[in-house]
Simulated scan of single mutants.
Amino acid sequence: MNRIEIEIKLNRDRAWLLERLGAMSEDELTTPRTFSEHDAESRWSFADHFVHTTLIEQNWNAMFRRHVGGDQGLAPRLNSDGSQQTMEEIMASIHGWTEEWKGEHNGKPFAELVRIGQAVRADTIALLAELSDDDLASKIPGAPWSDGTVGGIMAANADHGRMHYGWAEEDPVGAAHSH
């Protein structure tokens, strides 16, 4: 994707998500909808799914900066003995991390979650402006998202929000989903 397509996608999908969530009452936003994949006692609401996408976008921005700065963008995930973690171990760690983030933001008004997301999205747009076309087209070794390029992964932030919205909308009883 080129920078114009990336910006259009990011803005269009963010507006789509905010229009839907912004039209909900506080009760609709905070009612538990899906089961957590980390804690069997925890449930995620629309608001929880929304703030989760902010955490991932923030993390991806840091990954992009490491990658274009010459460092390893996607660091290997290792066990304490130095062995490579299995996908199951990696996902368990990610689910714990996102559950902790959810807990940090639990009970905040939706407008505050939007403000937090705006700061991260502003960083994403600023980063998009800073990156060269070659940077956007460069592949991050081992990145499993989109086409593995910085630009493709950056644009996937839009898809991530829609995906989580869909899970919360379609699954009020809470079957587990991968974040």
Results as ranks from 00 to 15, higher is better:
Glu5Asp: 14
Glu5His: 07
Ile8Thr: 13
Ile8Ala: 10
Asn11Ala: 07
Arg12Glu: 15
Asp13Lys: 12
Asp13Gly: 05
Arg14Phe: 10
Leu18Asn: 04
Glu19Leu: 07
Ala23Thr: 03
Asp27Trp: 12
Phe35Asn: 11
Glu37Leu: 10
Ser42Gly: 06
Trp44Asn: 09
Ser45Asp: 00
Asp48Glu: 11
Thr54Arg: 04
Thr54Ser: 11
Glu57Arg: 02
Gln58Met: 11
Gln58Thr: 04
Asn59Arg: 13
Asn61Asp: 05
Asn61Ala: 05
Ala62Met: 07
Arg65Cys: 03
Arg66Leu: 09
Gly69His: 01
Asp71His: 06
Leu78Asp: 04
Asn79Val: 06
Gln84Lys: 13
Met87Phe: 13
Glu88Gly: 05
Glu88Ala: 13
Ile90Thr: 11
Ile90Met: 09
Ala92Gln: 06
Gly96Ser: 00
Trp97Asp: 15
His105Pro: 11
Gly107Thr: 03
Phe110Ser: 01
Val120Glu: 13
Arg121Phe: 12
Arg121Asn: 09
Thr124Ser: 14
Thr124Cys: 02
Ala126Glu: 11
Ala126Gly: 12
Leu127Tyr: 02
Pro144Gly: 04
Trp145Tyr: 14
Asp147Arg: 01
Asp147Cys: 00
Met154Ser: 03
Met154His: 04
Met154Ile: 09
His160Ala: 00
Met163Gln: 08
Asp171Phe: 04
Val173Gly: 14
Gly174Asp: 03
Ala175Tyr: 09
